[in-house]
């Protein structure tokens, strides 16, 4: 039986490929996919939702088709565009969890802020080259700003620039899906931070605690003004 849960999936790339495949096999009731990109040949080694036949086509269109091929009865919406401050809260208000697989920290912080304000659990991850992290923030517990504080002013490498090994986003996306399954079961995986290093063959869990000076947790951030997200909020 389908659950009442509705998942918002931000980005339809490397992390979200396993997320969407596994959500389709869960009892989630609804999935909304947000992305603005087309499938490129260079994506295929890590974005396992897509095949050669999808090159040049809309990711959300092909992602929806892939998910429905797994579970035809699943309710799936798509939003062609970027996850941006103007629409973030209205989108989140229609969902019970958000799984974020964006390729830039501005969007990651936007998702974290919006989810905290909307009181929706946020399952987030980041990966580059051989390693990455996955984290679940639930209302009332540590958030992404408790962990990384703010968008770095320095340039941070992305998958598009530095590359990422396919199994790294595969493993971290599966960890995100595991968080989602636990939320579906009514568990509260608060503050868990997983680190995966494929080159060392190491998977490690640490805990993130609420920081007393976190501007999101202590209520200093109550809106999603664009200036706060310095980079373009590409999904």
């Amino acid at each position: 039986m389908s659950s009442h849960h509705r998942a918002l999936v931000v980005g339809a790339g490397g992390l979200s490929s396993p997320v969407l495949r596994l959500l389709a096999k869960s009892r989630i009731g609804h999935v909304t996919i947000v992305d603005d990109d087309l499938v490129d040949e260079s994506n295929l080694h890590r974005q396992t939702l897509y095949t050669d036949a999808d090159i040049g086509r809309s990711k959300i269109e092909r992602a929806k088709a892939a998910v429905l091929a797994i579970r035809p009865a699943l309710s799936v919406d798509t939003v062609e565009g970027r996850f941006v401050p103007d629409t973030a809260l209205s989108l989140l208000s229609e969902h019970t969890m958000v799984l974020e697989g964006a390729d830039n920290l501005a969007t990651k912080f936007l998702v974290a802020d919006a989810a905290h304000i909307a009181r929706v659990p946020a399952v987030q991850a980041g990966a580059v080259r051989w390693a990455g992290w996955a984290f679940c923030a639930v209302p009332g517990a540590a958030c992404l700003r408790c962990l990384f504080e703010d968008i770095p002013s320095d340039r941070i490498e992305t998958c598009a620039e530095a590359g990422v090994v396919g199994p790294v986003v595969g493993a971290l996306g599966a960890l995100q899906a595991a968080f989602a399954f636990r939320l579906l079961e009514g568990e509260c995986p608060q503050g868990e931070l997983w680190h995966y290093d494929a080159l060392r063959g190491a998977l490690r869990k640490t805990w993130v605690r609420r920081r007393s000076d976190c501007p999101l947790c202590n209520g200093e951030i109550q809106d999603l003004r664009v200036e706060r997200y310095t980079a373009a909020c590409a999904a």
Binding site: L15, G101, D103, N104, G132, V164, V169
Partner: peptide, 28 residues
């Protein structure tokens, strides 16, 4: 997390491990 210990003054002893965890952006 050293922010919950003594930050840069956190004491270390023989055999301890210090892990560096930077923000990693990628994923799409």
């Amino acid at each position: 997390d050293i922010r919950f210990l003594d930050n840069l003054e956190t004491a270390l002893k023989d055999g301890d491990t210090l892990s560096i965890v930077p923000a990693i952006a990628g994923g799409r």
